[in-house]
């Protein structure tokens, strides 16, 4: 188990920056532009890692800890996700709860880092991030509850790895709803449209981009890679839910992950270019819809 899990994790760590790039490229294609090359994020990361950092005089260690937290938490959370469709690198019963806790840590420090600068731009981003989290969190937990109820397991590795087949045999409708709900949660967590707008730098529309406005150099590289990794984590959760690969031979299951993630990224791009970005007051409604879908999945299963 751990061999293929390690391979799959390594693959995801390598291709993670491609996902936002692919989504943006899809948007560019649909809107008739050429767009940035697919490998641009890697060049950006290399360039940023070599640049020097600029820190605001108002900031403290919290500002410097934020990028580290935003990178460290998805890195650790990645160990809990079964990328190869069979099992995760590490895991324990109830690690789904810890998964949410890790993401909360990343979010908390990102928001604190934003507030540390004293800029009202960053405050605005932090404020929105926190408000929307109060809908993301129940949606995520309802998804986990539906997954736990359909598979009888409490760890991500077991839920989405070993037992998901049983879930599809017993409650396909619930799992389909969970998949869609997780997709919406992914859109929000990865700061993609129609929740957020990754393309603009206008404070009125942004959430994530505005919170990281003051970070530079290696810090910004950490932030960019960390949020790409978070995108990949949630995309993998969606893929694992909707395309169970328990019965597949492991090399195939690992190999299938790459096109599946690419499909998710393209889908994100398609959604981003076909739906207008939601007004900020509508975002909670959108997220509440995701939570409601997951809740329906739970209700159908509890029956």
């Amino acid at each position: 188990m751990s061999g293929s899990a390690t391979t799959a994790l390594a693959v995801v760590l390598i291709i993670a920056p491609l996902l936002p790039s692919l989504a943006s490229r899809t948007v560019a294609f649909i809107t008739g532009r050429r767009g940035a090359p697919l490998l641009q994020p890697y060049r950006d990361l290399v360039k940023l890692l070599g640049k020097r950092a600029v820190y605001s005089r108002t900031t403290t260690g919290v500002f410097r800890a934020a990028p580290i937290a935003v990178l460290a938490t998805p890195l650790l959370a990645a160990a809990l996700v079964p990328f190869d469709g069979h099992g995760s690198l590490a895991g324990f019963a109830g690690d789904a709860i810890a998964f949410a806790g890790l993401l909360a840590l990343g979010r908390m420090l990102l928001a604190l880092g934003g507030l540390d600068t004293g800029s009202s731009f960053e405050g605005m981003g932090a404020s929105r991030e926190l408000a929307f989290a109060s809908f993301i969190e129940p949606a995520l937990f309802l998804c986990f509850a539906a997954l736990a109820l359909t598979t009888g397991e409490l760890s991500l590795g077991r839920m989405l790895g070993g037992a998901i087949d049983r879930g599809w045999a017993q409650a396909p409708a619930s799992l389909a709803m969970v998949g869609v709900s997780l997709f919406v949660v992914m859109l929000a967590e990865a700061s993609r449209g129609p929740v957020d707008d990754p393309a603009t730098h206008l404070e009125l529309t942004m959430i994530h981009e505005v919170t990281i406005l003051d970070h530079s150099g290696p810090d910004l590289a950490f932030l960019l890679y960390g949020s790409a990794l978070k995108f990949a984590l949630f995309a993998a959760l969606v893929v694992d839910t909707l395309m169970p690969r328990t019965g597949w031979p492991t090399p195939l299951a690992v190999a299938a992950l790459i096109p599946a993630l690419a499909v998710v990224a393209v889908l994100v791009g398609v959604i981003e270019s076909t739906f207008a970005r939601l007004r900020l007051v509508q975002v909670p409604q959108f997220l509440a819809g995701a939570a409601a879908l997951a809740a329906l999945g739970v209700i159908l299963r509890v029956r």
Partner: peptide, 8 residues
């Protein structure tokens, strides 16, 4: 949101 909750 209230309507969705009622529906649920």
């Amino acid at each position: 949101i209230g309507m969705v909750v009622l529906g649920l």
